[in-house]
């Protein structure tokens, strides 16, 4: 399995990472070789095998519905690269 330049551009766009032309070529080679390598998984018969997302076999513990957090405005904003009137500020988004 090799990956096309077009596909790399698509996933770079989904990942929101800009990549230059020469990076694309390098990534094409690298990712293709990784993909080739992971192909070996196809040797494994996984018919009727449930996927496993976590090694823990217990289930989710639930917390009580109590307000015991929040009201941390200064903590939330203290590392902000752009802030005004307690809002985060980004370039205008057009819907």
């Amino acid at each position: 399995m090799t990956i096309s330049k077009d596909r790399i551009l698509k996933i770079a766009n989904l990942s929101k990472i800009s990549i230059s032309e020469d990076q694309i070529e390098k990534l094409e080679v690298e990712i293709s070789s990784i993909l080739n390598w992971v192909e070996t998984l196809n040797e494994v018969d996984t018919e009727n095998i449930e996927p496993m997302s976590n090694s823990l076999t217990n289930f989710l513990q639930m917390r009580e519905d109590i307000v015991n957090d929040g009201e941390k405005r200064s903590d939330i904003l203290s590392n902000s690269p752009a802030e005004d009137e307690s809002f985060f500020v980004v370039p205008k988004v057009i819907e």
Binding site: V38, L41, I49
Partner: peptide, 24 residues
Amino acid sequence: LMGTYVLSAGYYDAYYLKAQKVRR
């Protein structure tokens, strides 16, 4: 990029799901 790829539409089953099964 690799992670985005293996989760993306059309590749999820072949890569991510397969790997999760092998994990089991």
